[in-house]
């Protein structure tokens, strides 16, 4: 039962990262792809009707985590207190940037301000999310009661009194930043025409080299910081398909980008994100929040909720998600096609 809910939460997290990932990514490359006011308006319009639904995956994942693994929710959210509250502020700023920009469409000062807010908040969010994942992989200073608290930074090392930010988690943040930039650029290439489309493809083309470099660097760093992550791979060798898929998806991004097949390139970067996360999740199991002192690690076994609650949710959860996927299909179908520069909202 706990394995099922572990996989469900992982699935929802992957959905969140792929979906909100492309609109956060669009924010990262906002100024590269949109060179003037009308083009930046087109960037915003391309994510306008969908970003809110994408962000709902974060809330739905949070809610699912909350009832399936209450002890994890309690420990993780209070332990990452400062960065999570800052994430909230960034989410508020970013949403305002997206939705308020077009309220005064013809006021250049207004749109310039919100463009900046949107881009900045997107960049910081990508780095924060990456650093958060880095913390989970590195492990946190959980105590015997199952709680911890980390300041934003301490001595930048991965042992002893750790902070949210150290060399390893910053590296994870950079990986997330580059990966979402490429992913977002792929999305914009898919949704735009002409010069904007060309510039999006350029971002993917050059971003790709950075992505390969940081991916290799981060895999090496994981081996150094948490070598036990490989244990599951040795005991269940089918897991090695995941790193192979990471490599294959990287190659596919480059290939389809070169061919000008934006849809396939976007799907490839989606697979890349899913596999990177999947690889981490596969290695972590049964831990959900490893402790620096392994005796205090939170696992699916000691963090799960009651058996009845978990089984009854197995009935409503699939129903809800299937209905939600139907809305999604309808929404994306209604707003399919490319956005045109200069069109009114």
């Amino acid at each position: 039962m706990e394995l099922i809910w572990f996989m469900i939460v992982a699935f929802m997290l992957v959905c969140y990262v792929i979906l909100d990932g492309f609109d956060i990514g669009a924010g990262i490359v906002h100024y590269f792809v949109g060179r003037n006011d009308a083009e930046r308006a087109a960037v915003i319009r391309s994510i306008g009707p969908v970003w809110d639904g994408n962000e709902v995956w974060l809330l739905a994942t949070g809610g699912t985590l909350y009832f399936a693994f209450p002890a994890l929710y309690a420990a993780g959210f209070s332990g990452f207190y400062l960065p999570l509250i800052m994430v909230l502020w960034l989410l508020i700023m970013r949403a305002a940037g997206i939705e308020l920009r077009h309220q005064l469409e013809h006021n250049q000062m207004w749109t310039a301000f919100w463009d900046f807010v949107f881009a900045l908040a997107s960049i910081l969010l990508a780095i924060f999310f990456g650093a958060a994942l880095g913390n989970v992989i590195r492990g946190v200073p959980l105590n015997a009661e199952g709680y911890f608290f980390e300041p934003l930074f301490t001595h930048w090392g991965t042992t002893g009194e750790t902070g949210i930010l150290d060399w390893f988690t910053v590296l994870s943040g950079v990986v997330a930043f580059v990966a979402l930039a490429v992913h977002g650029a792929n999305y914009l290439a898919l949704k735009t025409e002409g010069e904007m489309n060309e510039r999006s493809r350029m971002v993917v083309k050059y971003g790709w080299f950075a992505l390969v470099a940081v991916t290799i660097a981060s895999l090496g760093a994981v081996m150094y910081v948490r070598p036990t992550l490989l244990d599951n791979y040795y005991s269940l060798p089918i897991g090695w398909l995941i790193p192979i898929a990471v490599a294959a998806s990287l190659a596919a991004i480059y290939y389809f980008n070169g061919k000008g097949n934006d849809k396939a390139a976007f799907l490839s970067s989606s697979v890349y994100l899913a596999m990177m996360l999947g690889g981490a999740v596969f290695g972590l199991y049964p831990n959900v929040l490893p402790a620096l002192d392994p005796a205090y690690s939170l696992t699916v076994h000691n963090a799960k909720a009651g058996e009845y609650g978990l089984s009854v949710a197995l009935i409503w959860w699939p129903i809800g998600i299937i209905i939600a996927l139907c809305y999604y299909r309808f929404l994306f179908k209604t707003f399919k096609g490319k956005v045109v520069v200069g069109e009114e909202h």
Partner: peptide, 9 residues
């Protein structure tokens, strides 16, 4: 958490 997750879903 159950009702909060249902709200999301």
């Amino acid at each position: 958490g159950q009702t909060l997750a249902m709200e999301g879903t």
